[in-house]
Nucleic acid binder design. Sequence first.
DNA 1: TCGTTTTCAGATTATTTATTCTTATTTAAT
DNA 2: ATTAAATAAGAATAAATAATCTGAAAACGA
Lengths: 143, 143
Amino acid sequence: MTVIFSKKCELALQAVLFLSIKKDQIIFSSQEVSNEIKVPKEFVSKMLQTLTDSGIIGSKKGKNGGFYLARRPSKIKLIEIVEAIDGLSVFKNCVLGFPNCSSEHPCPVHDKWGKIRDDAFKMLSEETLEQLKEKTVKKITSL
Amino acid sequence: MTVIFSKKCELALQAVLFLSIKKDQIIFSSQEVSNEIKVPKEFVSKMLQTLTDSGIIGSKKGKNGGFYLARRPSKIKLIEIVEAIDGLSVFKNCVLGFPNCSSEHPCPVHDKWGKIRDDAFKMLSEETLEQLKEKTVKKITSL
DNA sequence: TCGTTTTCAGATTATTTATTCTTATTTAAT
DNA sequence: ATTAAATAAGAATAAATAATCTGAAAACGA
């Protein structure tokens, strides 16, 4: 099987998008996030912990605790979540897996892939969660 | 970690490209392929077996046996190798991992990703191994 | 025919990723 | 203070993928 992002990263993207459609800094328990994105709460919790480490998510312990966006949706881009979980290697490595793929020693699809890779990076870098909000609401409510 | 294609698929692409730069139907042992693309010969052998099953590669047993392109390089496209090893799910599934992502229920990056995904598919579908030959030679000799 | 080489197929091992479970700690409410 | 609810942390398990090994069968050459 083949993926662009790891499962953990996909779920992180989904969870962060979910958190971004609510009012700023509202706290949700892992149980609530779990219900919304349909994933076991233990996994949600583990995954949000990772994002907490990288400062995108904040957490509050104890009763009525939970997770919340640490920064405003207008300040967060999807690429940050990808970077925090999977890193940016997909945007660096040769798509055919050749070692030392570069403009000096390009693989047969080096230039074409370069263009596509940059487009993908842009897609995740240009819009903030705030700008994606309307689309996100529509998608989440359809789940 | 994150990949577009599985390791097996990457190596399959490399191996097939390598075979395409030689004269038609020349046989190479897994050992020779192994030397060229710098990968353990057992792994090469396993991977080429899979391609043999799907008819892209032919094999010959016994002494002086080995693997060869079953069809002419002018008749083979990279996407066929991807399909044989990893399948085409990357080109179908939602990049954010949302279930049921479609034009009725698009994820926040549905349209943009659709464009990129199609470009990537094109990249692998448009040129034949024959057309990539010159670039392939340059790359392989640099390894 | 016999021996050698080499693929083939399947079993095995190792590694990575995904998922679940358990325990401890924190916090809020009573 | 005590209790209940929640995360944090890390261990444990499961599953998928990557990589290696082994024995059998096939093909060639002498």
